[in-house]
Design a protein around this nucleic acid. Structure first.
Length: 583
RNA sequence: CGGGACGUGGCGCAGCCUGGUAGCGCACCGGCUUUGGGUGCCGGGGGUCGCCGGUUCGAAUCCGGCCGUCCCGACCA
């Protein structure tokens, strides 16, 4: 991104918290992280006095943490406004009947309650229903479109398992926006505008991110992308080619799998004894064939009965991909399997199976494989799809690292990531059931074509910390730090250096910086330094007895902890310049 | 929902196995000391040992139930 707001420092247009003298302020830091904190961002945010936990998945933002959160939201707001979206605010508590209209009432994650009159209410986990309800009442004509509306609002989700501090919580603020267009071309424009805004937002936040293809689920297949920040703490995985030609959530990633040397195809499957062989590893060792030459038969139970899924030996079954083919399903129990196939799970195969749906991975469609014979201790070699059995063919395998990129052929990398944003082409999923229609130019009533777009500001902070920290603490990107400059005063309030620090504090503040001046009396210098590094503001300035009367002034850049010495004369200007040079 | 672990002062932990009336470090308060990398010394305050019940003369400790929190997996519009 060449946006000058990324690198050059300038007075932000959004209001910010201003400079602060630390003495008397509320900033509780911790020497040790709580024992139940696991993720780096969780530990550091608690230790650095940014957040505190109230209960599982419920966190309070403390003053300094709130400052960073407000910096993220200010950036998001600027970029949403820039693409012409309008901010509004929708209720958190909502009548259940609106959710009944879209079939989303009663989801496991939904918090439900009743008002005193016994009316069923929900706490909003997202706001598609509500925005569409309003659109249905206010949008009448194609002349009213397109629209993009957004808000920052609390979402409540009864997560089965909150975790990793602020990364997976039950209550959080989301920036959610919704686009309304007359047709798919308009949706594509709104979608692209959001994608571009998101790129600017995450660039300005100074984090590493990818835009990846994501699963549309049952949304109608109109397209969706996720914005992912690479981090070991991430809960999602993406497959990505090194050049960036292709990037997709593992849930829908495809690959060019290895093509093995099959050798001559036998005329007919040949049975052979495999006593005690029940796993791919054992079968590979026993036959001397690599796992790519073997076929795994995995049995699941769908709503319509048992299904046999076939994948190659080196792969694992991707249950989400399979569910796109057969719908909801669960793993079969061993005794169920013996009842249907007459053999144990380790000896199953597709040949001779009748009355059971068979889904084969695309890799199985070529070549011939070793499969189970549906008799314990016996396998078949030379099994060919189409000749020896019939099956539906679909991509149902997990992508493996190193497999070919479907676009460029490069070896794919698999990377854990934190989802920080997503964009969805909803189409008419909500506008039809809620009756959100407009009258077209030729007088026909048409459903509004919608998109929805989310960002989790707190996740952006956590991702930044996951990506940028060292053993001493956080290394904030310039745009997200609670303060730009952290001044450490060594000396008491009556010392000459205190007077000098006051003067510099005012100069830097007047120059547009947000400055934290650590003027706490009776706090040891070492403690101030340690806490400054824990908090991680981009620049630290130390004023002590060494500073006066002739300088130099010590300025430390948090990233890399390199020290600069600047003359007292024109110190503020020198710091402004140093700031401009920081990435 | 399945598996695992933990719950003792604000934070980190010991004590539990082998029951006898609670301890350490940090933090906090007072004093002296120190003043450029969590200073040193002295003296203090603070804990129904998650909750309920049981066993026992006596329970932080043993037994049962419940609650809470974290981790792995499942789930995730």
């Amino acid at each position: 991104m060449n946006d000058d707001s990324t690198n050059a420092w300038r007075m932000p247009s959004a209001p910010r918290g201003g400079s602060v003298r630390l003495s008397g302020r509320f900033w509780p830091t911790l020497r040790d992280a709580p024992a139940d904190a696991e993720a780096v961002s969780h530990k550091l945010m608690v230790r650095a006095g940014l957040i505190r936990q109230l209960a599982s998945g419920l966190y309070s933002f403390l003053p300094f943490g709130l400052r960073s959160l407000q910096r993220v939201t200010a950036i998001i707001r600027e970029e949403m406004d820039r693409i012409g979206a309008q901010e509004l605010q929708l209720p958190i508590m909502q009548p259940a009947e609106i959710w009944e209209a879209t079939g989303r009432y009663g989801l496991d994650e939904q918090f439900r309650l009743e008002d005193r009159g016994g009316r069923a209410m929900v706490l909003g986990m997202t706001h598609e229903e509500i925005i569409t309800w309003h659109a249905a009442r206010e949008i009448r004509s194609y002349r009213d479109l397109p629209q993009s509306w957004y808000q920052f609002q609390t979402k409540l989700r009864d997560e089965p398992r909150p975790k990793s501090g602020i990364l997976r919580v039950r209550e959080f603020t989301m920036k959610d926006s919704y686009s309304m267009d007359t047709d798919e071309a308009g949706l594509a424009r709104s979608y692209d505008a959001h994608a571009a805004a998101y790129a600017r937002i995450f660039d300005r936040c100074g984090i590493v991110w990818y835009m990846v293809e994501s699963d549309v689920g049952m949304m109608g297949g109109m397209g969706a992308h996720e914005f992912m920040a690479p981090s070991p703490a991430g809960e999602d995985t993406i497959a990505r080619s090194p050049s960036g030609a292709y990037a997709a959530n593992i849930e829908l990633a495809t690959s060019i799998a290895v093509e093995p040397e099959f050798g001559p195809i036998p005329d007919t499957p040949q049975a052979f004894d495999t006593p005690g062989i029940g796993t791919i590893e054992q079968l590979s060792a026993f036959t001397g064939l690599a796992p790519v030459r073997l076929c795994k038969s995995v049995v699941v139970v769908s709503d319509d009965g048992p299904v046999m899924a076939l994948i190659r030996g080196e792969h694992t079954l991707h249950e989400k991909k399979l569910s796109h083919v057969i719908g909801r399903h669960r793993p079969a129990q061993p005794d169920e399997i013996r009842g249907w196939f007459g053999a144990s799970p380790g000896s199953l195969g597709p040949v001779g199976v009748e009355g059971v749906r068979i889904v084969a991975d695309t890799t199985i469609a070529t070549g011939h494989y070793v499969t189970g014979a549906n008799r314990d201790g016996e396998h078949l070699r030379g099994v060919v799809l189409g000749r020896d059995f019939v099956a539906e063919v679909a991509d149902i395998r997990n992508v493996l690292p190193g497999e070919g990129c479907p676009v460029s052929g490069e070896p794919l990398d698999l990377e854990p990531v934190i989802e920080i944003g997503n964009i969805f082409k909803l189409g008419t999923k909500y506008s039809v059931p809620l009756g959100a229609t407009y009258l077209s130019a030729d007088g026909h009533e048409q459903p509004i074509i919608m998109g929805s777009y989310g960002i989790g500001p707190a996740r952006v902070l956590a991702a930044a910390i996951e990506q940028r920290h060292d053993e001493a603490g956080i290394i904030w990107p310039k745009a997200l730090a609670p303060f730009d400059i952290h001044m450490v005063l060594v000396g008491d309030a009556t010392s000459p250096q205190a007077a000098f620090a006051d003067q510099l504090f005012d100069q830097l503040s007047d120059a547009g910086f947000e400055v934290l001046l650590d003027d706490r009396p009776g706090t040891k210098p070492g403690e101030k330094f340690v806490e400054a590094e824990l908090l991680g503001c981009p620049i630290r300035v130390t004023i002590g007895k060494r500073t006066l009367p002739d300088g130099p002034l010590e300025v430390q850049v948090r990233s890399g902890r390199e020290r600069h010495e600047v003359p007292l004369e024109g110190a503020a200007a020198a710091i402004v310049e140093l700031w401009g040079q920081l990435p």
